[in-house]
Amino acid sequence: MRRVLPAAVVVAAWMAVPSSADAYGPRVRKACANDYMDNCHLHRLGTPELRACMRKAGPKLTPQCVDALVAEGEVSAKEVAQRRASATGK
């Protein structure tokens, strides 16, 4: 329950700032809110710094967030597969 309130705040912040909110679709906003809070909350939404942080945090992101990022074109399925393969050494 502890994570529900921060997630709601992040989603509200995404919706309150149109230029930042437009940078991410609804699926990413919903699926990645906790990942954002856990890994990259020091970066403003829609910035190159946030994108770099989320890429660096990639192995720690939840499968739901990764799937949403792929579905909305933020990262390619090929890149995700390559990163997973290199992480497992295959």
Rank of each mutant, 00 (worst) to 15 (best):
A57C: 14
V9W: 14
V80F: 11
V4T: 09
A52R: 15
R44F: 07
D67P: 03
V75E: 10
V4R: 11
E49A: 13
A87P: 06
V17S: 10
V4K: 09
P48C: 06
A87Q: 13
Q64S: 14
T62R: 09
D22H: 15
L61V: 04
Q64E: 10
D22I: 02
R27H: 15
E49H: 03
E72R: 05
A8E: 14
S20N: 00
D35V: 03
K78E: 10
P18G: 06
V66L: 03
L45I: 12
V4G: 05
G25P: 01
Q82S: 08
E79L: 06
G25Q: 03
A33K: 06
V80I: 13
Q82F: 08
D35M: 03
P26C: 05
C32D: 07
R44W: 15
L45G: 14
P18T: 05
V66I: 09
K90P: 00
A12P: 03
T88Q: 15
A68F: 01
K56F: 02
Q64A: 13
V28L: 06
P6D: 11
K30R: 13
K30P: 00
A68G: 05
D67T: 08
C53T: 10
A77V: 11
A13W: 00
L45T: 03
D38G: 09
P59Q: 08
G58F: 12
L50P: 00
Y36R: 13
G58S: 13
A81C: 02
A87N: 11
V66H: 00
A23W: 03
P26G: 09
T88D: 14
A16I: 01
T47Q: 07
A13S: 15
Q64P: 00
T88A: 15
S19C: 00
C32K: 05
D67E: 12
V66A: 01
N39T: 15
A68Q: 01
R29G: 01
E72T: 09
S19D: 02
Y36I: 15
A33I: 11
N39C: 13
V17W: 07
R84Q: 11
A21P: 00
P26T: 12
Y36C: 14
D22P: 00
Y24L: 08
L69Y: 04
K56I: 02
P59Y: 13
R51G: 11
A85L: 12
V28D: 01
A33T: 07
M1K: 09
E79N: 08
V4P: 08
V17A: 07
V66Y: 00
N39K: 12
K30W: 01
A71C: 04
N34W: 00
A21C: 01
A31K: 14
R27E: 14
G73M: 08
L61W: 05
N34Q: 12
A7E: 11
C65A: 11
A8I: 06
A81L: 09
R44H: 14
R27P: 02
K90I: 01
S86A: 14
K30E: 06
E74P: 00
V70L: 03
G89M: 15
D38E: 13
P6N: 09
S86N: 10
R51P: 02
V17D: 10
D67N: 10
K30S: 07
A68W: 00
E49N: 07
T88W: 12
H41Y: 02
V11F: 13
A77C: 01
M37A: 11
G89C: 06
W14G: 04
D35K: 00
R84E: 12
T62K: 10
R2A: 15
C53F: 01
R83F: 10
